[in-house]
Each structure stands twice: as C-alpha cells, then as structure tokens.
Simulated assay, not measured.
Amino acid sequence: MTGATRAGGSRRRLPRLRVKLRELYHGRTPAAVRFRLGIIGLDFLLIGFFIAAPFLRKYPVYLYVDYMVAFVLAVDIAARAMAFSGFWTWIRKPSVWVDLFVLVTLLFPLWLFNLAFLRVLKLWSLFHGDFFWETIGRRYDETRWEDVTKAVATMVTFVFVATGFVYTSFAGEHPGIAGYLDALYFTVMTLTTTGFGDITLTGVWGRLLTIVIMISGITLFVRLAQTLIRPYKVRFTCPACGLMRHDADAVHCKACGTLLNIPNDEP
C-alpha cells in the first residue's frame, strides 16, 4: 500500500468519525443519550477528584491519577471539538475555556500547584452548559429546577474556589489555617456571615478576601432565594421573535405580542 493510498484512507475515515461523534454528542437516539449520560457521569467523577485533590496530594499515586485524568479530559475535549459543526463557534464557549484551563493544570500539576483549586470551575461549566440540560434537565417545560440547580452550582463552585484562595494564600502562614479543612471552615463561616471569630485573616489581603467572600455570599444567597420564589416559566419558542421562556399561562409573547399556543396538561 502506497503512502498516497494510506493518506486517502485516513481522509475518508476522518469525516466518518466526525459524523459518528456528532451523532453521539448531539443525537437524540437512545444510544446517544446513554453515551451522553456516561460522559456526564464521568464529569461528576472528575469533579469529585478535583474536590478531593487537596487531601490526596500526599499519596505517591496522586500524580499517576492526575495524568490519567488529563488523558481522559483531553480525549473528551478533542471529541467534542470534532463533533461540533463550527470550530470557532465552539472555541468561544466559556465552558470550553474552563475545560482547557483544567487540562493545563492537570498536565503541569507541579508547576501550577497554586492554581489547581480552580479546577472545580468544571462544576460550574457542567451545570451551565447545554450538554447537561439537553441530556437530562430539559425533559420538562418548566425552568424552575434548571435555574435553582444553576444557582446552587454557582454557590458551591464559589465556596471551593474561595477555599482554594484561602488555602493557597494562608495555609502554613496563618496559625488558624493548618490545612484545607480549616480553609473550608473559614470560607463557609464567612460566606454565611456567622462570624465566630476563631479564625480571622489579618493583613490587607486577608481583609480584602474576607470582604469579597461576605459580599459574594450575600449575593449568591439572594440569587438562590429569587430562583426559589419567583414564578416559573415554560420553555416555548415564540415563532416570531424567538423568545424561549414565557409564563405558564401566557397567551401572547411579552416581547412582540405574537399569539402563543403553549401546550399544557389541562383538559
């Protein structure tokens, strides 16, 4: 077999691979849904590893697991890129940049040790991405649980990111923060404005970080409360202007006034 023949075979196999990946990542067949559920389950395992990483770094096997996770994430990113119809549209997605940043921290764990806590941003990108909701969450018309889940995911992500900042900045230097659990305790205490006072960050950086955590905590709790008490909306695309969310009993689109025909279960 000549080199030209092998090159031609490779060029023919690549489009078939892209079609197969596009079917798996964006299709609606039972096999595609099962595949995406497996990917989402894998994402949860990765997030669990990222959260547990501060407690696992002392074990020699940690680096091997880290590089294995990097390989799995790299394969997933490459497959998603091939499955997407337009590369430049795909690369502009915030969730893609989060995944690429996480991959870099996994490939260079010793050099980027102080940035490893930002890997938990994967939790935010998972619940704010269409991949999760088109597979699991959007089986119903109402959007309340989607908004609540996104608000909770944002709050949990912020807790672990803030904990990482406290841990990398003050562990070993502040007498009250001897380990990751102390940093998590301080973050939750400050976030909820409990103010026990047993751990107080001193210095300009410590005070600024405490202020940011308190203000962000109040904002995130207010956001969560809003999603819980405000009326839910249904997902129905307006045929005229494309508005996707409407009140459950809406007759006309509030953006353009077009008559709507939102289906419901009432007789």
Rank of each mutant, 00 (worst) to 15 (best):
P109E: 04
F165V: 15
L118E: 05
V159N: 03
F117Y: 15
F113R: 14
R138K: 15
V166A: 11
N114S: 14
A153G: 11
V152W: 13
F117T: 06
P109Q: 12
T154K: 10
G137N: 10
L115P: 01
L118V: 06
G164T: 09
K122T: 01
T154G: 02
N114Y: 10
P109S: 08
F170N: 12
G137M: 14
F131W: 06
L126A: 02
Y140H: 14
F127I: 08
R139V: 06
R119T: 00
F160H: 04
A151E: 12
D141H: 09
A151H: 05
T149I: 15
V159P: 00
L123D: 05
G172E: 10
F132W: 00
D141S: 15
R144C: 02
K150A: 05
L115G: 05
L106M: 09
S169R: 12
F170V: 06
A153Q: 04
I136Q: 01
Y140D: 09
F117L: 02
L121D: 04
H128Y: 13
L115E: 02
L106R: 13
T154F: 01
L106N: 08
L112Y: 09
S125V: 09
I177C: 10
E142D: 14
Y167V: 05
V156G: 07
V161Q: 02
V161N: 04
N114C: 01
T154D: 11
F160D: 08
T149Y: 03
G176E: 08
T149S: 11
K122D: 05
W145Y: 15
L110G: 06
H174W: 04
A178I: 13
L110V: 04
F165A: 00
T143F: 11
F165H: 02
W133P: 09
V156W: 04
L106S: 13
A153N: 04
F160I: 07
R138Q: 15
L112V: 01
F170Q: 13
D141P: 03
L123E: 03
F170K: 08
T163E: 05
R138P: 04
E134S: 10
V148A: 07
A171I: 00
P175K: 14
V161G: 00
T154Y: 01
F113P: 01
W124Y: 15
L121G: 03
M155F: 12
V166R: 10
L118I: 05
F131N: 03
H174D: 15
F158T: 09
F108N: 02
T163K: 07
V156K: 11
F131I: 05
V156H: 05
E173M: 10
A171G: 05
T149W: 06
A178K: 14
F117W: 15
T168Y: 12
V159T: 14
F158P: 00
F117N: 00
T168H: 01
H174Y: 01
V156D: 07
K122R: 10
L118K: 06
K150C: 02
T143N: 15
N114D: 14
E142W: 13
A116F: 07
D141F: 12
F160P: 01
E134Y: 08
T149K: 00
